[in-house]
Amino acid sequence: MKVMNGDEFASYIKDRFGNNVLSMRVDKFKNGVKKSEFHSVWLRVDRSVFKDVMRAITEIHDEAHIAVASGSDLGEEIEIIYHLNLFWGERNRQLTVNLGVRCPKDDPHLPTISDLIPGALITEREKQEFLGITIDGIPDPRRLFLAENTPEGFYPWRKDEDQQEKLKKLYRDVHEEGV
């Protein structure tokens, strides 16, 4: 493991994956009276190289910590951002890497990363049920948080028109039928 700062990490990924890195930004935050600094890297990569980037990250630090994967609906596409913490265990050297990847709504598939970081399983299961994407190769694809009587095909974080309709129906059911 070689500890890198935000700029070094960014240029390493850029060199290795070239044009498949769609955008890249390094945030630097100053804290306290002494103004000590830590870095946070925001990456957007193409879906075709996503798994390879993830593998490259785990090669840099084999004990990479996954904080969470957050997801959102961008209209035509769904974006998942994997928030990873690298180089923990040394004072003020932890680097937060936010790795974003998009998939179109008509083909919502992403490869699993739980083979690289087993701790990602819970958050992958959550993304499946809340955004309606499919994680290929997930070891345990069941629902996690939504109740059994929630209708199939209702994804709370989607912002489509028909989702809003389903939501209205969900409200109506509650008020007319009770439980």
Binding site: T150, L167, L170, Y171
Partner: peptide, 8 residues
């Protein structure tokens, strides 16, 4: 208020 999973 106004959540899909809170019934009242």
């Amino acid at each position: 208020y106004e959540s899909y999973n809170i019934l009242g």
